[in-house]
Computed example of a mutant assay.
Amino acid sequence: MVGIRKRGEDIRQFILNNVEHNPKDIVALTSRAYDISRQAVNKHIKRLVEKNALLERGATRNKRYILHPLVKWEHIYTLNGTLAEDAVWRGDISEFINDLPDNVIDIWHYGFTEILNNAIDHSSGTQVHIQITKTATTTEIVIYDDGEGIFKKIQRELELSDERHSVLELAKGKLTTDPDNHTGEGIFFSSRMFDDFAILSGSVCFSHKHDQVEDWILERQKFQSGTGVFMVLFNNTARTPKSVFDKFTSGDDYGFTKTVVPVRLTQYGHDNLVSRSQAKRLLAGVEKFETVIFDFDNVETIGQAFADEIFRVFKLQQPDMELIYLNSNEQVTQMITRALSRE
């Protein structure tokens, strides 16, 4: 009897985990996955609808299912110099999170307070809008401020070429426009803790998904004022803040010593990575780390000067630094190998 009950729980959890991306064919998908009839699947779905875990939309052949929001909450706060991220967490946010596992609460506590603090200290806005949507499988929190915009601010204060360059610097970690009060690590670690993390500002969107090594820059034609940060986390994830810190730190003091640099973010439009100036843009700030991993995913080709500047010239300047490359195709690997052979 216990085995039957456990199988039923597994089937219902499968439905919940997959319905978001398969709202119309979740019955067929579940039927194939567990080798059961569509009628049996429909019984499990009916139970989830009755428990308010799923919502049913449409009828007969147009029927689809979506996750039922267990929590839908939003509030606008005034950025008047007195707002404190820990007070907002304790007073308003934690009550929606406190029924989740301790490790999940810890991730939300870290990520929420880091991102809200950035809006309070750096946005130069007048208000911040916070939204929470919680379902049976995930929780999403959106924090939006009406300030200058994070990428535009970084571009202006660091005198960068454009907002895309701001995203590249942010992706490396340790970037801050206020070094006396901030380490610049909060956004980097927050982006690695969540299953889906995105920052939308101006005409640029920075995105990181937990199951992918690389970061993404997406450009929009429509301009977005202020800064919107979107964080999504599975309610039953086994991830912990410590497990994320351990990937990029070393020693008992948790020194932030390692970073992954998505090389693709250096490309503007259809430009190929061929010049030393492009390589120097990629290398800016990485001397703060002991280990730098260059991720060449989705980079089709690089030039000799680009490879030489990173893997010979820079390496000679930083002999104690460990430089690692991954996800390189045959052409890119050949260029890197040629540069290394000239050390």
Rank of each mutant, 00 (worst) to 15 (best):
I150Q: 05
T176F: 10
G173M: 09
V204K: 05
K174G: 11
S190N: 01
G184W: 06
V204R: 01
H182M: 07
D162L: 06
K172Q: 06
D196V: 12
I187L: 13
D195C: 06
G202E: 05
I199P: 02
F188I: 00
F189H: 04
I199S: 04
G149F: 03
F194P: 10
A171G: 14
G202H: 00
S203E: 08
H208E: 04
S166T: 14
S161Y: 07
D196A: 07
R156C: 07
F206P: 02
K153C: 09
K152D: 07
L200G: 14
N181P: 03
S191N: 06
D180I: 12
Q155W: 03
E148W: 08
K153D: 05
I154V: 14
E163F: 06
F197V: 08
A171R: 13
L158K: 06
L160F: 06
L170Y: 02
H182N: 12
E163Q: 10
F197S: 02
I154S: 02
A171S: 07
I150P: 04
L175A: 11
D178N: 10
G173W: 13
S203I: 06
E157I: 11
S191L: 00
I199M: 07
S207R: 11
L160R: 14
F151I: 02
E148Q: 08
H165L: 08
D211N: 09
R192V: 00
I150N: 13
D180R: 11
K153A: 05
G202V: 00
V204C: 11
D162H: 14
F197Y: 05
K209D: 07
F194I: 06
